[in-house]
């Protein structure tokens, strides 16, 4: 079980050992995927659909411009996403009150990991249920939805805190 709570001004992370380990493994796989792309990210659009979605074409309808901009931004973008995953793993290793930077890392990484899972499950347009043929796909689908629910929980707490701040 992984959950967030609002304690005064702070978001607190609670995680049992088993789920913390599972999510830490996922974060490690995510940085591995990014690592595989790092060598080529600045030169060409990725061929892996998950990486293409994480590092989309920056300029619409202009491949040449897109590659020029990608050359300037891809390394920093990959590094940003890798740092988020590492920060998430670090907070799972010592659950408790999150720093503001941790909150942002969690929000962004939950999105990124769900983008990867969705690409693997073939969730491409609104309404796609995703592949459920194998045990692995069903487990991945469960994780995809569970992490979506976790992100929704975090967003609600951030909203609640913003309302508290506005009211005080």
């Amino acid at each position: 079980m992984i959950r967030f709570d609002l304690a005064g001004e702070r978001i607190e992370l609670a995680a049992d050992a088993e789920d913390a380990a599972a999510l830490t493994r996922l974060a490690g796989q995510f940085t591995g995927l990014l690592g595989a792309s790092a060598a080529t990210a600045e030169h060409a659009p990725a061929t892996d659909p998950a990486l293409r979605r994480l590092l989309p074409d920056p300029v619409q309808d202009d491949p040449e411009e897109s590659e020029e901009v990608r050359g300037l931004t891809a390394v920093a973008l990959v590094e940003h996403k890798r740092a988020n995953a590492e920060r998430v793993a670090a907070t799972l290793a010592r659950p408790g009150a999150l720093e503001p930077r941790d909150e942002l890392a969690w929000l962004q990484w939950l999105t990124d990991i769900r983008l990867v899972l969705a690409a693997r499950l073939g969730i491409l347009v609104d309404g796609d249920e995703g592949l459920v043929e194998t045990e692995e796909q069903r487990a991945m689908g469960w994780t995809y939805h569970a992490l979506g629910a976790l992100q929704a929980e975090l967003l609600e707490l951030l909203d609640e805190r913003a309302a508290q701040r506005a009211g005080s």
């Binding site: 590092l55 989309p56 300029v59 619409q60 973008l77 940003h80 999105t111």
Partner: peptide
């Protein structure tokens, strides 16, 4: 605009500049 689009990619939104 390119900076904003990159920031959207940091958030995992699908964004482009044009």
């Amino acid at each position: 605009i390119e900076r904003h689009t990159e920031a959207m990619h940091e958030y995992g939104l699908w964004a482009t500049s044009d």
